[in-house]
Design a protein around this nucleic acid. Structure first.
Length: 124
RNA sequence: GGACCGAGCUGUGCUGUCGCGCGGUAUGGCGCCGAAAGGUAUUACCGUGAGGAAAGUCCGGGCUUCACAGGGCAGGAUAACGGAUAACGUCCGCCGAGGGUGACCUCCGGGAAAGUGCAACAGAAAAGAACCGCCAUAGCAGACUUGUCUGCUACAUUGGUAAGGAUGAAAAGGCGAGGUAAGAGCUCACCGGCAGUCUGGUAACAGCCUGCAAGUGUAAACCCUAUCCGAAGCAACACCCAACGGGAGAUGUCGGCCCGACAGUCAGAUCCCACGGGUGGCACAGAGCCUGUCGGCAACGGCAGGACAAGAUAGAUGACAGCUAUGGAGAAACCGCCGUCGCUAUGCGCCGUCGGUAUCUCUAACAGAACCCGGCUUACAGGCUCGGUCCAAUG
RNA sequence: CUGGGUGUGGCGCAGUUGGUAGCGCGCUACCUUGGGGUGGUAGAGGCCGCACGUUCAAGUCGUGUCACUCAGA
């Protein structure tokens, strides 16, 4: 499964301002309805709605190795989330790593992401 | 055995489940997205996928573009000598200086007899020095050997000196002897400096001999000398699609300046305003790596053979679990060697170092390609190999 | 990728041809006041980001390095 990535800075800004915020110990989740969801559905080869995912890892986390690991763990956790639950589609999802993510396992992040997604309204 | 020195290599592995980038084959499709250029779904299989520093971006190149790029000034870099190299500020060798008992290590290590500047405080004086002093000189007194010696005073004058003077980082070669009115490289020995001949060496330089006496330090102060350097960087740059609108406008074309060359001056170079998207560059192959051999003290070079496919663009190379794998640390247990001590002494016991066996626990360095190479620097848990030095010992 | 800048008392900053490290705020003690503030006097507090070097002498000069920060494409 391929992710549709979020890369424009203004979309991040919109998600921070207008999105639903669901903080946890090691991550913060922002969810916002995607205005271009229908356009993306049209462009998608299988005509599915998708969520656009953005992962933010600041330099506070550490060097390139630590930041890459944080991104991988978060991506893995989100992948498990889509696999286990029926995630609502058509949203901008921004996941921000906090400084305490150093040394965490992906299963721990996964459980935090599940509760955060429940509060953010992505899953029941 | 202990303490070191130098060089090189290495940088956990395996299994299971899930997952990612790129390439290929098959499947699938002739659609879909987009204004266009262009891109391309799904599924399966195969192949492949981070480093010694990928890092810092400190040097040097390749490559690309810039009047097809030319001259001068300015500016920058380097700094004993010889070599290696595409090149270097790198590497090798060697010289000199310094450190270490030694293996060996460290050094921005040209020029101060071309010029300018600076040297606080202290000190007479901090760079073509003369304040005090010493001596000559003048006067007086004394002694006697009757023209010498000693002492005192004056330094008003003139001259000779640089021995001594509380300083300072540094005081005009050092030190000893001779010498002198007093002194002084004035003379001599030793040491140091400079110049020259000769010898050795490609050279820096070293050695011997002869001669000379110039007057401090600082060029990581300006500077001088020699050599080298055009500028920018893959967000370079080339091409394609869209747009071709509005405004400024006489200069623009690579940096600071000048010259030269080219383009342009209203059919208007160029700049600004709004603005992209895509493809190539760019992932096959080299100044590269490994092995052998020859040349060379070595860096390195010649020849022969061999292996080789990361290529993203919010950025893949992973997540989780397990292991009688691997390394390290610790714990207690057993066995063995050696040593000390004690005793009821050809043995036993206690303690210690080292090694081995199996068990348990903990731990796994620094760190992530982004156009590509050669170096440098910095970070780093450990492990392995080779060569060498010093000390102790000789069963 | 390229080019700059800054690290000095707790905080904000000075410090030029190298020669005793300073200013303001803050802090401490004392005086002033019935008490506090204000005011006054005195004082403490610095390996000048780190390392090596040049020099008689380094905050200053050179090289390396670490951290922070700005600008441009």
């Amino acid at each position: 499964m391929k992710f549709t990535s979020l890369c424009e800075n203004h979309l991040f800004q919109k998600a921070y301002r207008g999105g639903k915020k669901a903080p946890a110990h090691r991550i913060v989740l922002y969810v916002l309805a995607d205005k271009k969801a229908n356009l993306l559905k049209k462009r998608h080869p299988l005509k599915r709605k998708v969520n656009r995912i953005g992962i933010t890892v600041s330099k506070k986390i550490g060097g390139a190795v630590q930041r890459n690991r944080a991104k991988r763990i978060i991506r893995e956790a989100y992948r498990c989330l889509e696999k286990e639950y029926s995630v609502k589609k058509g949203y901008l999802v921004v996941i921000v790593a906090r400084e305490s993510i150093a040394g965490a396992k992906s299963t721990e992040i996964y459980s935090e992401l599940v509760s955060a997604a429940r509060r953010g309204g992505l899953i029941q």
